[in-house]
Design a protein around this nucleic acid. Structure first.
Lengths: 105, 105
DNA sequence: ATAGACCAGTTTGTAATTTAAACCTGTTTG
DNA sequence: CAAACAGGTTTAAATTACAAACTGGTCTAT
C-alpha cells in the first residue's frame, strides 16, 4: 500500500487518537455504553468527550440515545455498522501501512 | 489494554494521518528521501509536507539535511532511532487495539 | 421548603493546529 | 533578458481541540 492511499482510504475523523479510543471502546462492546463509563474508559474531560462524540455522531459512526433513568439523564452510545466498518478499516490499514514498512528495514 | 492507554502511550504527533504516512515512508527506507519524492509518496501539498516535516523534526522523530546538489537546493529526510521506536510502539499499540476490538465482535 | 452539593452533560472562548495559497530564491530555457 | 520552473518556506484564514464555565435537574440536610 502506498502511504498516500492510507490518507485517501481511511476516515479522517479516526485520525484523532481520542476519537480512536472512543471508537475502540464502543466497537468492543455489543451493549451501549453510557457517558460516564465511556469517560472513565477513555479518560478525557467531559467537555471533550461530549464534543468528540458529537462529531462521531454527525458522521454516523456512532449512535446516541438520550433517556431518563431513575429521574436522571443518561446518554448512551453505540457503534453503528458504518462505524464498525470504518474502525476496522482504519486499524487494518494502519497495520498494513506500518507492518509493511517494518519488513523493509 | 484500556483505550485510554492508547492515548497516553503513543506519540501524539503520530496521531495525524499525514504524519503517519510520512513516517511510514521514511521508516521503510534506509536511504534518505528527498522532499519531492516524499511529496509524491504521501501526496500532500508542498506547504503541508513542509509544515508536518518540521514538526516531526522538532520532535526528533526525523532528521533533515539540506544541501545543494547540481546547484539546486535539496532537502532530505531520514527517520531517527527515536522515530523508529515511536513508530514501532505505535504499531504494536494499534495491533493490540485491533485484536482487542476484533475478538469481541 | 430551601440552601447547598452533586450529577450528567453542553456550550463557550481561547489556544493550538491544519491547510492551501502566496511568496521567495535561485536556475534553466526560449 | 524575460519567462517559466524547481524546491521549498511563510502566511493568513479556517478548523479543531481543550478546559473552564455553565445549564438543568436531583438529592440531602436543615
Amino acid at each position: 500500500m502506498k502511504p498516500a492511499e492510507f490518507l485517501t482510504d481511511t476516515h479522517a475523523l479516526l485520525g484523532d487518537r481520542a476519537r480512536l479510543a472512543i471508537m475502540a471502546t464502543l466497537v468492543a462492546s455489543k451493549e451501549p455504553i453510557d457517558f460516564t463509563t465511556l469517560l472513565d474508559s477513555v479518560n478525557l474531560t467531559k467537555g471533550n468527550l461530549s464534543a468528540h462524540a458529537k462529531k462521531l455522531e454527525d458522521a454516523k459512526l456512532i449512535r446516541v440515545k438520550k433517556e431518563f433513568v431513575d429521574r436522571k439523564p443518561r446518554t448512551t452510545y453505540v457503534c453503528t455498522d458504518r462505524g464498525r466498518n470504518e474502525i476496522d478499516n482504519y486499524l487494518s490499514k494502519v497495520e498494513e501501512l506500518l507492518r509493511h514498512t517494518k519488513l523493509k528495514c
